[in-house]
């Protein structure tokens, strides 16, 4: 099975966001970047499928030169090779990113293309499903369970309070939700091996964006509240506040 996994370099989930001088992007100084957490589930699923059925896992990332490090992380987990689609910037319009990824993926005749459900920087939850549409492939998003037998597959996706069961045939696109698997940590041996694995770097032209950034700002801080008291004796005061002040009961 030939599998592609699309991965993104994003600020670590602990990052305290500071707004950059342009007022439209974050100040990247001191920010630690990581492989997007949801993409770890996608990489893990690809590796598991390869272990079962054989084949190849290719990690594809659109980003700046610094994304090489992110690709190496996926290679250290066990992916076979990487492709960096090099671009100075990433558009806020997910269609632009999706078109660039689709153009690359189209040439690979993959049986399966995996994405994370969501990139924790732009919070778009769009790119995987858009790429599937652009490629004309069946796709299921936010998958928590995947079963593949030959070319037929069943996936489960969580919806509000229930689970949808979707059947489809390969080639196909999946976006991975937390719960799909437990991502492995790269072992030392994996990290050593990753250094020698092939990483193709291709310059890409990004298309025109239909979205302009007017500004990026920090949300209003929640105003500090108050401790109504200590221990169970404080319960009546809390209930009173909820009922008469906040009016939520």
């Amino acid at each position: 099975m030939k599998i592609a996994v699309c991965i993104k370099r994003v600020p670590d989930s602990e990052t305290r966001i500071k707004i950059g001088a342009d007022g439209k992007s974050i100040d990247e100084s001191g920010v630690k970047f990581v492989l997007n957490p949801f993409d770890e589930y996608a990489v893990e699923e690809a590796l598991k499928l390869k272990e079962q059925a054989g084949g190849e896992v290719v990690a594809v990332c659109l980003g700046t030169d610094a994304s090489q490090e992110t690709i190496r992380t996926a290679l250290a987990m066990g992916a076979d090779r990487g492709v960096l689609l090099k671009s100075d910037s990433i558009s806020v319009d997910p269609l632009v990113t999706s078109r660039a990824l689709a153009a690359e993926l189209e040439q690979g005749s993959y049986d399966l293309v995996l994405f994370g459900k969501l990139a924790i920087d732009d919070y778009g939850q769009a790119v995987g499903t858009m790429v599937a549409e652009l490629l004309g492939l069946p796709s299921v998003s936010a998958v928590t369970r995947l079963e593949i037998t030959d070319k037929s597959a069943t996936a489960e996706r969580e919806i509000e309070g229930a689970v949808e069961v979707v059947e489809f045939t390969l080639p196909a696109v999946i976006t991975a939700e937390k719960g799909l698997n437990e991502p492995r940590y790269p072992a030392l041996r994996g990290i050593m091996l990753a250094k020698k694995k092939p990483l193709d770097i291709k310059d890409v032209e990004m298309g025109e964006s239909g979205v302009d950034v007017l500004g990026l700002s920090l949300p209003a801080e929640r105003k500090a509240g108050r401790i109504v008291g200590e221990g169970p004796d404080a319960v009546p005061a809390l209930v009173d506040a909820l009922q008469n002040e906040a009016k939520v009961l």
Partner: peptide
């Protein structure tokens, strides 16, 4: 931007070839 809309929105935007602003 529910489970439904987060899946359907990108599909429509891709088919129309237009921008998507989610959530």
């Amino acid at each position: 931007a529910t489970a439904f809309g987060k899946d359907l929105g990108p599909r429509i935007a891709a088919r129309l070839g237009c921008p998507l602003a989610s959530d």
